[in-house]
Design a protein around this nucleic acid. Structure first.
Length: 475
DNA sequence: TGAAATGTTGGGGCG
DNA sequence: ACGCCCCAACATTTC
């Protein structure tokens, strides 16, 4: 029997445009392996929402191709599988998490020890982080020139079609997916997820198609509006590699060239968002401490508060600020939160409550289906003002004004904070200003069925600015 | 990919 | 008719 090629699947759970899989298929019968590795990421093993997604994504994939499931440290598992199958090569898609580089070196060593060739491919990003440098050969620290450099490198490589796979016919043991218990059982907090999401490669392709058909035209103007369904919703699919950024790029390009003959505004805006994801990984690659340490070290001296009760109030969407609570509840119910609302909710935790950004980052890590070590850490640092090319610390969101600007008739708030649903538009983002009569008519009883604001934003803003002054004084 | 404070301008009311 | 004040509306600056 010809010796098989081992394809180690990771955050590339797709058959099309998968360079590792294509190369493995060309090398021989393929053993497709997914390893659930909770040891290597240390503190950053996949959170609850992420595991729910992974379960469904693997289920879909296993329905298409024979999949070997194993659990344990990936390098050890790969060494075992090489011994069991006699595979003569290992192929995998590169991962850019801080723990992934060392792991990939251990895998290479294990492969070589077994006499197998080891090949690594790109695809999770458009550009390898090492390849984008500024004029003086340094990594970029500012988004705009970074994105220009990306655009200047030209179009991503042509896409690879799904390869024809020859399944390996040998015997190999595999775990049962159900036994991994990746989905919740006791309280089924994910019951609302399935209404919103279809994990897997087909779901990703459908989502992209739908976005191009019905969201893209208004994307530039309406992407900040949580009350509209305009965003692509591709982030979890991209995180798990059910679709590649190159596939998204080419599809949007093609649609726009067909429509107008040139790259128009909505398409450019979308591609720039894809490049924010790229920029996050660029920063993470060159600064592996990004998930834990402020990029600007002076923020280590920031006078954060420790307030477990306030953190829980925020997590549960009971802050008393409707737009914040709507976002936090959307997150809990669906595993996603609209990007604009993420900024507002994050700003509230960091600046109104003075709770360290890492606490919010952890909560998002556990609750987001698109939890991603690059985007999550870079974005929290951006809001906190301690990141590279970040919003300045003194840029503090006013949750009332943001709500009125981006959810003007309150329909987003009404959807996720139903106890406020009958308030008139005028008060939907500031219920504490509503007269008694209006509250009574809307069935809102402040402090009883909807909380009073947990802080006064005006005072909280002053306190945040004072804390920032203290930081500057110390520097 | 803010918001508040402060500054400037210009039209209208009014003595 | 004129100057003064008020204050929106807009612009700039500061946090």
């Amino acid at each position: 029997m010809t010796s098989p090629a081992l394809c180690w699947l990771r955050q590339d759970l797709r058959l099309t445009d998968n360079a590792a899989l294509t190369a493995a298929a060309a090398a021989g019968p393929v053993v497709l392996l997914y390893v659930l590795d909770d040891t290597t990421p240390g503190d950053w093993q996949a959170g609850g929402a992420s595991r729910w997604w992974l379960h469904h994504s693997l289920m879909r994939l296993a329905a298409e191709v024979p999949l070997v499931l194993r659990r344990g440290p990936a390098d050890k598992v790969i060494a075992e599988v090489l011994a069991e199958t006699g595979a003569s090569s290992v192929h995998f898609t590169r991962d850019y998490a801080p723990w992934a580089g060392p792991l990939e070196r251990r895998v290479k060593a294990a492969a070589e020890a077994a006499g197998a060739a080891c090949h690594r491919y790109g695809g999770f990003l458009l550009h390898e982080p090492e390849s984008i440098r500024n004029g003086s050969g340094e990594p970029y620290r500012v988004y705009t020139p970074f994105s220009k450099a990306c655009f200047a490198t030209g179009e991503p490589k042509p896409l690879k079609p799904a390869p024809r796979l020859t399944a390996w016919t040998g015997n190999i043991k595999t775990d049962r997916l159900e036994d991994w218990e990746l989905y919740p059982s006791r309280p089924d907090w994910a019951s609302g997820f399935a209404a919103v999401w279809t994990p897997g490669e087909a779901g990703a392709a459908a989502r992209l198609k739908r976005f191009i058909r019905s969201g893209l035209a208004d994307y530039a103007e309406a992407r900040d509006r949580p009350d509209r369904e305009v965003t692509s919703g591709l982030s979890p699919h991209l995180h798990f590699g059910e679709i590649s950024p190159a596939q998204c790029w080419h599809a949007v390009r093609r649609a726009q060239l067909a429509a107008s003959g040139k790259l128009d505004k909505p398409a450019e805006k979308f591609l720039k968002e894809v490049l924010w994801r790229e920029f996050s990984y660029h920063l993470l690659h060159h600064w592996p401490q990004l998930p834990v340490e402020p990029f600007r070290p002076e923020f280590n001296g920031f006078p954060w508060r420790s307030d477990e009760a306030a953190l829980r109030t925020w997590q549960r969407g009971q802050t008393g600020y409707p737009i914040v609570d709507a976002g936090m509840r959307e997150l809990w119910a669906t595993g996603i939160m609209h990007n604009r609302v993420r900024m507002i909710a994050a700003s509230f935790l960091i600046k109104d409550l003075l709770i360290p950004w890492q606490a919010g980052e952890r909560w998002f890590w556990d609750t987001l289906v698109d939890a991603d070590i690059g985007s999550n850490s870079a974005s929290w640092q951006w809001v906190a003002g301690c990141g590279a090319d970040a919003a300045p610390y003194f840029r503090i969101f006013n949750p009332v004004l943001q709500g009125e600007k981006f959810d003007p008739d309150g329909s987003y708030v009404r959807k996720w904070v139903p106890e406020l649903a009958r308030l008139p538009n005028e008060f939907i983002h500031r219920p504490w200003e509503a007269p008694q009569l209006v509250l009574a008519e809307a069935g809102v009883a402040p402090g009883r069925n909807y909380p009073h604001p947990m802080v006064d934003h005006g005072k909280a803003r002053d306190a945040a600015l004072a804390a920032f002054q203290q930081l500057k004084g110390a520097a």
